[in-house]
């Protein structure tokens, strides 16, 4: 009998850096600890991260797809595993399985305007998109990033946002739910930025990631601008134990978020989106 590779066995990766982003979010940079490596990833995919003896969690990849050997994950410390992860030091080894799931439609976006809308930590799975847009800038029309965070202190990837904002070929709008300190920028939900954003609704691709309620209102607002539903993509989140369609936890109607998602064209899930407790 030919041996079947066991998709449940993690590959060891060594932590190179642990970078604090905000009070409760941090970024891990990892490289393979042995000759074994996971396959290259596409923007929007995720990995399962295992901490010895603690557990395993799905985390989106927030790094640059053109340098897949350097694996980057940004997450919030909200559960047992992510809290243990926050305490890890460079040199520690964790287990990686992946990459899993569908990806953002960067191919479909070619030649079109691109609107990236992120809420909170939802910016992490979209950062690989932004890296790609910047790297191959000439392939796309207008590029717009709309980012909303709870407070100015919760803003992720500040230095990169600043760099992108300074570019003349990119529009970056940031808003906060609650202004604190000496914040002089926008205040309000991210959807309020949509009508002001300069893009062609009839030839654009919108990629939206954040809390479901934020994604829902973003979709409504994008449609108000005339963006067809087929041009809108969202990324979903559900409980996951295996990431390979076996554990059943991530089911969303007929879809397994782990393999049919996490990125969906909105019309694929529209019929389920506003139903309670699906």
């Amino acid at each position: 009998m030919a041996a079947v590779p066991d998709p449940m066995i993690p590959i060891p990766y060594r932590i190179q850096t642990v970078q604090r982003e905000t009070d409760d979010t941090f970024t891990l940079t990892l490289t393979a600890a042995s000759s074994e490596q996971i396959a290259p990833f596409q923007a929007g995919q995720f990995n399962m991260l295992y901490i010895f003896g603690v557990g395993e969690v799905p985390i989106s990849i927030s790094g640059d797809p053109s340098t897949p050997e350097k694996l980057v994950h940004t997450t919030r410390a909200v559960g047992t595993v992510t809290q243990a992860m926050q305490k890890l030091k460079p040199g520690n080894v964790i287990g990686i399985r992946g990459p899993f799931g569908s990806h953002w439609p960067l191919e479909e976006a070619r030649g079109n305007d691109v609107v990236v809308i992120a809420g909170g930590i939802g910016l992490a799975p979209l950062r690989p998109v932004l890296y790609t847009l910047v790297k191959y800038r000439e392939r796309f029309g207008k590029v717009v990033l709309l980012y909303g965070s709870r407070t100015p202190e919760d803003i992720l990837f500040r230095r990169e946002l600043e760099k992108w904002r300074q570019r003349f070929d990119m529009e970056v709008y940031i808003t906060v739910d609650r202004a604190t300190g000496n914040w002089r920028g926008n205040v309000g939900v991210v959807t309020k930025l949509i009508p002001r954003a300069p893009f062609d609704p009839y030839s654009c691709v919108a990629m939206v990631c954040g809390p479901e309620i934020m994604m829902y209102y973003s979709v409504l607002s994008l449609r108000d601008q005339g963006v067809p539903t087929e041009s809108i993509y969202i990324s979903m989140e559900r409980n996951m134990k295996c990431a390979i369609g076996f554990c059943g936890h991530c089911q969303y109607g007929p879809a397994f978020i782990c393999k049919d998602g996490p990125v969906f064209r909105f019309d694929q899930v529209e019929h389920l989106f506003n139903k309670r407790e699906i």
Partner: peptide
């Protein structure tokens, strides 16, 4: 599914 043996900072 599997067992893991600690080996310093690795396993």
């Amino acid at each position: 599914l599997w067992e893991a043996q600690r080996d310093g900072p690795s396993f």
